[in-house]
Nucleic acid binder design. Structure first.
Lengths: 342, 342
DNA sequence: CCACGCTGGTTTATCGATACACCGGAGCCC
DNA sequence: GGGCTCCGGTGTATCGATAAACCAGCGTGG
């Protein structure tokens, strides 16, 4: 049995409350008793039980990032950014997995779990607005990275349409005429659909036709899916001279597929990704990609969350905070998978 | 204020205990009362407070993986594997960050936090045995991925020496004579040192000299460090025709550096990594790398942890479990960054 | 001389859920 | 008919820490 605070109290000959005070420093304690308590703590190898503190205090100083999957580099990088910011205020970040796009989605990570944290950053990739609508909870929640979710929630989104438009427009401007949209989808309302919209819009603006045969959906395994997309284009003889991959991970797979097919990048086929992962700069050739403003998104997300956690210092209760939608600034990062602008 | 269980009880006209029983299904409850309770739950939007349950039950059904950093793909993949296994037994995985190799190391993630979980999988990359020795806790802990830690703990390790030896031996067997060890170190006892040992051993076995000038340390940013290592070799005119990079991430940086320097892979320089990340197969050319037996490691880690969590069904108390050290099987995965064996 | 404030502590109630003991009645076996 | 289990419940103590109220002793100023 681990030692409890009252064990320490008994050993030190003081009350539990005094032990608590020594440990938290919340009240002054005489130097003598202080030392006795600390000695007892050391002696018994006592460790604070945070669970009990949480129950009593109703606060955990911990934020959770709920990502669709653990093994997706994008969320790893996001978590790192968030964690760094939270450390400044003495808080912690933990990451949980929702197992996106499966039946159980949020169910798997039962609603009750969210109560274990002061706030929730919920990535809603692969969830429908309906899924989110069902999410009735009193825990502060900020949604990340999607579009058109119920406006009951704060949301931090990428500018998906504009990012996709930028990427595609650049491909068209540098000479590509048949740009595949890898990871795209012609229906639904999720990220895949919205970026497909941007792809289409770029074509319109350039006065060029967008061929739906070039929209290739992706599945669960981005890397393999990217490669498979290229294989399929080649196999079916669909001509293409550019690829807009909807994530950098897909793009990595696409590059592998192109190499396999003996197609040169960027000479035969240009490629643009989306996310600007750390690794993308180091691919060979370096991946041209859309940078979704990582830092701004992290800043916004935490600002919105803090607004909900802190019961608004000025306003009284009942003053519901008006949900906000923020969109990060996108920009195109030019590297070796595209040709220089003419 | 969120509704509590006793609110529900009052609304349904039953005792709290009955509500609890309905919700957990731990005892039989009449169909009528059951329905009344569920109606009340729905009505009040009641959500179970897991914190309270944890305090009472002394169990959280949650395991934590403590990784040095969130944005390291290796741990993302590991987390995914662990999570999948834990789901089978109805448990959860959460990931926390230790911020390895900083002052605070585990301090940052205060010992008390570990008590929030039923068990801890602690990656000790970048920690010294002393750091770990200081780790006095009653929570079940299994150490991951290192060597020569205090044998008070269970440990699941990669066969670092053998993996490094394999990698280097293959480079030597396929014609490389000057093999750089990127991420290596000629002192200490951590992973970097041990893999350097394997690198050295392969040279000995082949009767070839191992030049310490080819051992290049890495810092915090593996990708950039890998590239920088190549830049440095080129800048300083150190001749080399092979690279053993101590992680696949470093290898990715190395490949970028080689491309930048106009060196062809594998014709001018062969490259081998370590980790067999998902992405490594999709680099161009595909990265030859050491596979550390991911699945076996995950299996072992959880087996050892469960052994500690479950107070050994057979033996009585006081029967201390003998700490175990398991080493995963390593194997070499051959891809395009090395030449075919002669 | 007494009210007053400070210091260093103790006592008590509480956070929300759950283990456990227990209850009256019904059914059943030997 | 005594002893047993099963049924659908209820009351109470408890998990460990902490906020808030309270208290004894002492110095001080008016």
């Amino acid at each position: 049995m681990p030692a409890t605070m009252s064990d320490v109290a008994r050993a030190a000959g003081v009350s539990v409350m005094t032990v608590s005070n020594v440990l938290t420093g919340r009240k002054r304690v005489g130097e003598n008793t202080r030392r006795r308590v600390l000695a007892a703590v050391d002696d018994l190898g006592y460790e604070l039980n945070l669970t009990a503190r949480h129950l009593r205090a109703g606060r955990t100083d911990t934020i959770v990032l709920v990502a669709p999957r653990f093994d997706h580099p994008y969320f790893g990088e996001l978590a790192a950014r968030l964690s760094k910011r939270l450390e400044r205020t003495g808080r912690h970040l933990v990451v949980e997995q929702s197992g996106a796009s499966r039946e159980g989605e949020l169910e798997a990570l039962s609603l009750a779990r969210l109560h274990l944290y002061d706030g929730v950053l919920l990535s809603v990739v692969g969830m429908t607005p309906d899924d989110v609508e069902r999410l009735r909870t009193t825990v502060p929640v900020v949604l990340l990275g999607e579009q058109d979710m119920p406006d009951r929630f704060d949301q931090v989104r990428m500018d998906n349409v504009e990012g996709a438009r930028l990427a595609t427009a650049h491909l068209l401007a540098t000479g590509s005429r048949r740009v595949a949209a890898v990871g795209g989808s012609t229906s639904g309302r999720g990220m895949t659909f919205v970026r497909t919209l941007g792809w289409r819009r770029a074509h319109e603006e350039a006065g060029l036709p967008a061929d739906d045969a070039l929209v290739l959906p992706a599945g669960q395994s981005d890397l393999a899916d990217g490669r498979e997309a290229v294989r399929r284009l080649v196999r079916e003889g669909t001509s293409f001279d550019g690829v807009f991959a909807f994530t950098d991970t897909l793009a990595t797979g696409v590059l592998a597929g192109l190499a396999e097919a003996g197609l040169r990048v960027p000479d035969d086929v240009q490629v643009v990704g989306f996310d600007n992962l750390d690794a993308s700069e180091f691919l060979v050739p370096g991946l041209t990609t859309v940078d979704p403003g990582h830092d701004e998104m992290a800043d916004h997300a935490l600002r919105l969350l803090d607004r909900l956690i802190d019961p608004s210092p000025g306003a009284g209760a009942g003053t519901a905070v008006e949900p906000e939608r923020v969109t990060g600034p996108v920009s195109l990062v030019l590297r070796g998978t595209t040709r220089p602008a003419p």
